[in-house]
Amino acid sequence: MNNIAEQLNLAYQNLTEKWQALPEAKIKPQLLAVSKTKPVSAVVAAYQAGQRQFAENYPQELAEKAAQLSSYADIIWHFIGPLQSNKTRLVAETAHWVHSIDRLKIAERLAAQRPAALGPLKVLLQVNISNEPSKAGIAAADMLQLAAGVSSLPQLQLKGLMAIPAPGMSEPAFAAMAQLSQTLQQHYPQADELSMGMSDDWPLALRYGATMIRLGTAIFGARDYHKE
């Protein structure tokens, strides 16, 4: 097993070096540790090494880990996977961020199920930027329409956009997302987050203005999908 603390430290060193080398001064992006399929012990190891922001893809796994780690009150949980209507309550009651809003119905359910005591849920709209038939996300042309609906809901805060490009299409996808982000901010200035870039393409995402990068394998090693 990889030494999670060492891998995490290396990831932050690489992130800092790439960020400092950017030609334009930008806000340093946040690193989200994608802990899906990993045991709670792996999350604890990353936490003990200084990590506070974790991302999960499956509602049940998110809820179970959050419950087991409830004493770690400063963990920030990001939900980044596809979300079905019958699983929204788990996410609404657990997550701090949701990156995968692609339907108004899902946003409405999250808003209705979000406990008032937890404060507003921060949400990103997922854009199917490579127009893949099998991938979740809205078409770029539908972004502002969904943004208008989401921004009107109580208990939600529209914070920006998320995308997962098709393999081999990262650069044109990231360039398009940067433009979409600027368009969104013209209407909603607070929606300035851009979640894009994973273990294999995050340096490129950084060049196009990513504010959140999602690293799983680079920190925790290969995933065990037999647990799904």
Rank of each mutant, 00 (worst) to 15 (best):
N2K: 14
N3L: 13
N3H: 12
N3I: 07
I4D: 03
E6V: 05
L8Y: 02
L8G: 01
L8A: 01
N9K: 14
N9P: 03
A11L: 12
A11C: 11
Y12F: 13
L15E: 06
T16N: 15
E24C: 14
K26V: 15
P29M: 09
L31I: 07
A33T: 02
A33L: 05
K36Q: 10
K36R: 06
K38F: 04
S41G: 04
V44R: 11
V44N: 05
A45E: 11
Q51E: 06
Q51D: 04
Q51G: 02
R52H: 01
Q53E: 15
Q53K: 15
F54M: 10
Q60W: 15
E61I: 04
L62T: 05
K65D: 02
K65T: 02
A66H: 09
Q68E: 13
L69S: 02
L69A: 04
S70G: 02
A73H: 08
I80N: 04
L83Y: 07
K87D: 14
R89A: 10
V91G: 01
A92M: 06
A92R: 07
T94K: 01
A95Y: 01
H99N: 10
H99K: 14
S100W: 10
E108V: 00
L110V: 08
A112M: 09
R114I: 02
A117E: 12
L118N: 05
G119S: 07
P120A: 13
L124I: 13
L125C: 05
Q126F: 01
N128T: 07
I129G: 00
K135S: 03
G137T: 11
A140V: 01
A141L: 07
M143V: 10
L146D: 00
A148I: 01
G149P: 00
V150H: 00
Q155S: 15
Q155H: 15
Q157V: 15
Q157R: 15
G160L: 11
G160Q: 12
E171R: 13
A173C: 06
F174Y: 08
A175R: 07
Q179T: 11
L180P: 05
T183C: 08
Q185Y: 11
Q186H: 08
H187I: 00
P189Y: 12
D192C: 14
M198P: 01
M198S: 01
S199F: 08
S199Y: 07
D200L: 11
W202K: 07
P203E: 05
P203L: 08
L204D: 09
L206M: 03
L206E: 02
R207L: 09
R207T: 08
Y208Q: 13
G209C: 06
A210W: 09
T211W: 14
M212K: 11
I213N: 02
I219T: 06
I219Q: 08
I219W: 02
R223C: 03
R223T: 00
